[in-house]
Design a protein around this nucleic acid. Structure first.
Lengths: 345, 345
DNA sequence: TCTAACAAAGCAATCGGTTGCATAAAAATT
DNA sequence: AATTTTTATGCAACCGATTGCTTTGTTAGA
């Protein structure tokens, strides 16, 4: 447990002042480059590492970014975080990650912890039941920047990073229609959340655009759990006129539902064509493989982190930008593909 | 962007010294309880929050725990992290989480970042190809405690938290044998990692204990990806004498393999009974539901974090403890259940 | 040769809590 | 009443890096 090397140690050995050492290590222009090299190599030799606390205390910043996500256990989220980590590391920022487990209560607690940890900025994807951003007011008041991604909510001075969920929902639904579906069911999550609300909007829009009626009995609002998937299959089984297409706002739930539908003797995509959302690896495990909407998590994470860091470094004001839309892609697989395209209008 | 409240502000208003305020806020016994209450309420009223950096700087500790895991995107890992977060929050510790993405290179970089962040302790689950713990030497030298969980490696002065993978592998294999399987294949991961090595050991032990020969052609070492699952199914298809039982060390891979096996016309569990590992939600999505080994991630996370924190608080020396074994459970589902038990020896 | 301009480095205060030691006041003991 | 003990608080140094301002030394220009 030997003592840490400080800039004072380096200064003493090199007969310099700590100020010079500090400036040299921070590549300050007023320091002679020979001196810089000498200091840098000595520091390395002695195994010096900067004391972030002293530095943070003086600088009044932490080089730490807080991340709050609903859950960590999705393929999508893990790619997002990988992207954020990459960018943050490169820029010498640390990440503090916490999960709200889809509950505002926990989200509020997380926000408080982040605030007390004095993060320089915040990257947030909202919990299912978050209705307002009041718990982030302390951040807004102090001018601590915050970026919302994926699960967003309009907010002054706050950049949002998303895909166009309306359009994605529209495309998914249109695809089913093109495959000959005429009674398309949609199961989605809590429509307090933009992602689900928007996908629902897109779904409805696609129906009307193609001259199909919107039937509220065909829209199921659930929590998108495995259980919900099973229940939907059961529900479909007992419907007088069951749907011939199904658009589920989440792959995992779609897959569990597919299993139950098949068990009920329905053929997919023959009797009912299915489209999911997110391109979770599970979509390629189920038989038939699930058609789904892919969007790049890694990229979303990178962009979110980079935008925040640029803002912190004064390179980009995030309050002038406001929404960044990323591209998505409808990945057509067997669960929805009826060949040849049925055109039985 | 108003100025932060400090203990000096509180001291001035209350006509006390900063020292008293500091002690009061830390519940120091030498401070009168009336004074404590007065200070506490004033602090609350003024919206005081402690400056962790000043505190850390002086105390020479960070109240931060570093966590390095192979990946975040598994159900198991997310429950582990949830458990850690819970315990850490309650004990006023922060978590810094990073993923090695199964690569030593990244793991080394993560360890360095953690070291520079001066975490008080480390919770680690090793990457697939980690062969030694040299990159943690800086921690050992400084006496920074480290606990390994799940993916472990024997190390002096380092508590390990695991399940008995040998026994679990043994049980899984025995279960298949009891269901009448006589040619049991085992697919596992990199056997540099204890979890896979041990499950393999258990598999072999079960075979010999039941008088079955160990056939190396029936042991497949892969990366347990979806692709590997598909390839195994293909391989099985072309085997002269195919197996009648399959034990895969990972649910996701097992499930992808099952899909391909079924596509090849094999019936599960009739032609081939399958057991996975981890009790991933996907095991309940596949048809037939997958028999698997469940073990409590949340609990593992809680125990790991609590042990570390106890050690940091001097309540428990982790170098005296050494291995904590958690219970697991074989969850029997349809993928392996042949009723009535076939006894065709 | 003398001064202006610039480059390089040092001084010392600062960030906000923490803590060993000293002190003062009150309570207990003789 | 005098002394010891206990309780409650204050003083001031300290943790390690940063930075505005000053100083010293050097080079260029007059």
């Amino acid at each position: 447990m030997e003592k840490d090397v400080t800039i004072y140690d380096i200064a003493r050995l090199l007969q310099l002042s700590p100020a010079t050492v500090s400036r040299a290590l921070n590549d300050h222009p007023a320091i002679n480059s020979n001196t810089k090299h000498m200091i840098a190599s000595k520091a390395k030799e002695m195994g010096y590492r900067s004391n972030m606390f002293a530095s943070n205390l003086r600088r009044q910043r932490t080089s730490t970014i807080g991340v709050i996500v609903p859950r960590l256990d999705s393929y999508f989220m893990s790619t997002v975080l990988a992207g954020m980590e990459k960018v943050a590391n490169d820029a010498n920022y640390n990440l503090i990650i916490s999960q709200s487990l889809e509950s505002v209560r926990k989200e509020i607690a997380n926000a408080k912890t982040m605030f007390d940890s004095r993060v320089d900025g915040l990257l947030v994807s909202l919990a299912a039941d978050t209705e307002n951003l009041d718990h982030f007011n302390t951040f807004f008041q102090k001018g601590i920047p915050m970026i919302l991604f994926d699960r967003i909510m309009p907010q002054k001075n706050c950049t949002n990073i998303v895909i166009d969920n309306v359009k994605a929902g529209y495309d998914a639904t249109s695809h089913l229609i093109e495959q000959g579906c005429r009674r398309i069911m949609h199961m989605t999550g809590n429509i307090k959340r933009n992602v689900y609300e928007d996908r629902l909007k897109g779904y409805k829009l696609a129906l009307t655009d193609h001259g199909l009626a919107v039937d509220d009995a065909l829209v199921q609002l659930t929590n998108l759990t495995r259980q919900d998937g099973l229940q939907l299959a059961d529900h479909i089984k007992h419907m007088a006129s069951p749907p011939d297409g199904l658009f589920v706002a989440n792959d995992f739930c779609a897959v569990s539902c597919m299993g139950a539908l098949k068990a009920n003797g329905l053929s997919i995509p023959g009797d009912i064509a299915v489209v999911g959302f997110n391109n979770d690896p599970v979509s390629q495990v189920i038989e038939p493989n699930l058609t789904t909407v892919h969007y790049p998590g890694q990229e979303m994470g990178e962009i979110a982190a980079q935008s925040l860091i640029n803002h912190l470094n004064g390179l980009l004001r995030i309050n002038t930008t406001n929404t960044i839309l990323l591209n998505y892609e409808l990945v057509v697989r067997a669960s929805s593909l009826r060949t040849p395209p049925a055109e039985s209008c």
